Simulated assay, not measured.
Amino acid sequence: MLSLTDLLNRGPVVSDGAMATELEKRGVTTNSALWSATAMLDHPEAIQAVHQSYLAAGAQIMTTNTYQANVPAFEQAGIPLAQARQLIQQAVKIAHTARDVSGVTDASIAGSIGPYGAYLADGSEYTGAYQLTTTAYQEFHRKRLALMMTAGVDVLALETMPRLDEVQALVQLITATWSQQPYWVSFSIKDPQTLCDGTPLATAAQWVAAQPNVVAVGVNCTTLENIEPALATLKAAVNIPLIVYPNSGDQYDPVTKTWQSTNLSHQFSAFVPRWLAAGARIIGGCCRTTPADITTVAEMVK
């Protein structure tokens, strides 16, 4: 099968969209600290159905349902260690099954690694209002990474990352332990020039671009109107593929864990040509985006 780098050499690549939104449509409750990882416990078939819906829409990347699935979070929810480990690997296996069933053999399976802030389940991935030592970051991420690598992912997705120091710790861990493993880094931003922790986006992207095995850098889980100026910031700073996957236009309230529509809701497709023109090489969707949005991206990329 083709690697993600091979796919990028052929032209822009289409990634998938939201998992939790599609799980909710299938009757899965996601408004807990575990978020979409809740489905691992009692609705694994729904996760597979969501993956297959995105492949059918034209996605060339499937992101595992592991953003908020980590051993400490499962243990906090009362799940025994052995089961927590099994659930994380099961998420990867479900993505493999979806790919096999769909017959889209060149789809890359991206192992989703959310930040420490996602584990806090208080919206910290949008503020960066936490700080650990390099060792503490690495110890937090190590178990999930090892489980996912054993289960078999094509690329790692270090996503919604609000802090450069956490990304540096993670990338150092990956390159030291799995020296050939490709990955992308996607930041959580305060504005099109700045990470949530205050680091200039250009500075963060330049650090990432200088690391081994990185396939793309970009931003995700931000508003539609932030993407084009963020791409301008990134394009001026680095010369590696740029990845973007914004939210649908709806606004999230981390306190109530609910979404409200805005005047940009359902305007996703109108922005895609502008992102392509601004240099995006991988385009997908984050929260509240749907297979219909990904179909639009696939059609425009073609």
Rank of each mutant, 00 (worst) to 15 (best):
M1I: 02
M62A: 09
T199P: 06
V219S: 02
T38V: 15
Y252G: 11
I94L: 08
T295W: 07
G114I: 07
L234R: 04
D6G: 02
Q267Y: 13
A204P: 04
S108P: 06
Y126R: 04
V255F: 05
V92Y: 13
G78S: 12
H141Y: 10
V255P: 12
P229D: 10
A237T: 07
L201Y: 04
A95C: 06
G17E: 05
P182T: 10
E125A: 03
L264H: 15
L120I: 05
C196T: 09
I243T: 06
P273M: 14
A46C: 13
M1Y: 01
C196Y: 08
Q131L: 00
L120F: 00
M19I: 11
F187H: 05
N247K: 06
R99T: 08
V255S: 12
L195Y: 00
P212F: 10
S102K: 07
I283R: 03
A210V: 10
M148K: 09
E45K: 15
P200K: 01
S15P: 01
T199K: 02
S265R: 15
A57W: 05
T105W: 05
G152W: 11
A209Y: 13
A216R: 09
T290V: 05
V215A: 10
G128L: 00
V13L: 07
Q172P: 11
T160C: 08
N65E: 11
I113V: 14
P182Q: 12
T5G: 00
A56I: 06
A82N: 10
N70D: 15
A18E: 08
L147S: 15
V104T: 08
P273S: 13
P291V: 04
H43Y: 13
G218K: 10
E166T: 11
A237I: 00
W184C: 08
E24P: 00
H141N: 13
T64S: 10
D122G: 06
D6P: 04
P212W: 12
A298F: 03
I174R: 11
S124I: 07
Y54D: 01
G218C: 14
T5Y: 01
T38N: 12
V217T: 02
V185L: 01
L164A: 01
V208Y: 02
L34V: 14
I240R: 00
E45P: 13
M40C: 12
G58K: 00
T222Y: 09
F187K: 02
R144T: 12
E159L: 11
G78R: 12
A204S: 07
T290D: 03
T290Q: 07
A151E: 10
